[in-house]
Design a protein around this nucleic acid. Structure first.
Lengths: 219, 219
DNA sequence: CAATAAAATGACCGACAGTCATTTTTTATA
DNA sequence: TATAAAAAATGACTGTCGGTCATTTTATTG
């Protein structure tokens, strides 16, 4: 009996349709200013129905972040050139990130600024956490390229992979977030984002080079 | 007649008392979960009175951020050693930032996570913007040390001061924010924040060295 | 064509930021 | 000191919104 399967399919379609609607509304009015009734109207459903598919407004936000992450992953995977060294690929990944934020600014925003709501802080600690570290995430790609870089000798091997990876990710995130939130200040100082990122990636590239000298004073 | 002056003084005292109360409540329950009635109760005033002194809940948040910024400034000013090179001082500033976030985690949180609310985004564009760039802000201190570093030859001079400054600020911010929001993930990977920051500061120190010359004469 | 199950609805609730007519307190005036 | 005027404070009230649930509508089954 294919009815069950069809129902399953329809349910998933409706789920996606709701996310589509939420996306449209969020991207237009911003998260805080969007109401569940707005989303319901956009989805041509009643508010109650939304709650049959999602537990909360926050959950809709999460779904959109997931979509963004998928897209970002695509960009990054495409950017990798297996022929090139790990260190070169790390630069490609950085550039892919920027390209993503240019091409999909709304997704980028959604991914950047979901932090902060105190509620959200807790929810992460569960399944999402594992996903963040091990799952199909952008970080895992970054991790792979750091590892590759160390293996092929293009990246210094005196620093732990996990530390380098998170460092690269956090730094880039910090730059892009800062630029987004303080854009007018940057423009006022005539700092373009591409310039900034380019300088950053240059500094990182140099910083990752293997130390040919045995010095450097950290532990 | 000192009545006007006394009133002025009392008004300012009450203002501060309200901020004190808001601080207590925000730091205990978190911003989103705190209600204006909570704050009113803590301040032993009615809610209406709060609105005679502040326009909104957000404004109270801003005030607390300002306090945090003052404290941070103090830390940074104290950290500067005029005898040492600009490049060394930049490291001191980084360490001061971390120390601040250890000593005053609630202020730190408040300063980190005020971004995101879509409303807030707009409000910055006005006076706050100038303050951010030119005012008595942590960034201006950073800027001064970059400038000093270039002048004394301890920092490479082939990159614009403004870019370097914002880069350093954004990177550090990114690392600390990421660590705060994803703390469990970091702990799971046994990455300590101090380690991470230390590696970051090392990389920065190396990256800032003048190119083409192995200048270390100012150390 | 019932009987039943699944899906959808929208009126309703509680919580909360913000308002404002009224009351209380302080100051100025005579 | 008595009283008018100004300043400060109050808290009942409003509108909004996320989330709920008893009821209705639609689809499935026998």
């Amino acid at each position: 009996m294919g009815i069950a399967e069809r129902k399953e399919r329809e349910k998933e379609q409706r789920r996606q349709a709701i996310i589509d609607a939420a996306e449209k509304v969020f991207f237009t009015k911003g998260y805080d200013s969007s109401t569940m009734d707005d989303i319901a109207e956009a989805a041509e459903l009643s508010k109650g129905t939304l709650y049959l598919y999602f537990q909360s407004k926050d959950e809709l936000h999460f779904e959109i972040m997931d979509r963004g992450n998928e897209i970002l992953m695509g960009f990054m995977e495409k950017a990798i050139d297996p022929e090139k060294s790990g260190r070169e690929n790390l630069r490609f990944l950085g550039e892919a990130f920027v390209e993503f934020s240019n091409r999909y600014p709304e997704y980028f925003q959604a991914m950047m600024f979901f932090q902060s709501r105190d509620v959200v802080q807790q929810k992460l600690n569960e399944q999402k956490l594992k996903k963040f570290i091990e799952g199909r995430s952008s970080i895992s790609l970054l991790n792979a390229m750091v590892t590759k870089g160390i293996a092929d000798g293009s990246v210094r091997n005196d620093l732990p992979v996990s530390h380098l990876t998170t460092l690269l990710w956090s730094q880039m995130m910090g730059i892009l977030v800062m630029y987004s939130t303080k854009k007018p200040a940057f423009e006022y100082q005539q700092i373009s984002r591409d310039q900034l990122v380019s300088i950053h990636l240059d500094l990182v590239r140099d910083g990752l080079k293997p130390r040919h000298t045995e010095d450097s004073g950290h532990e």
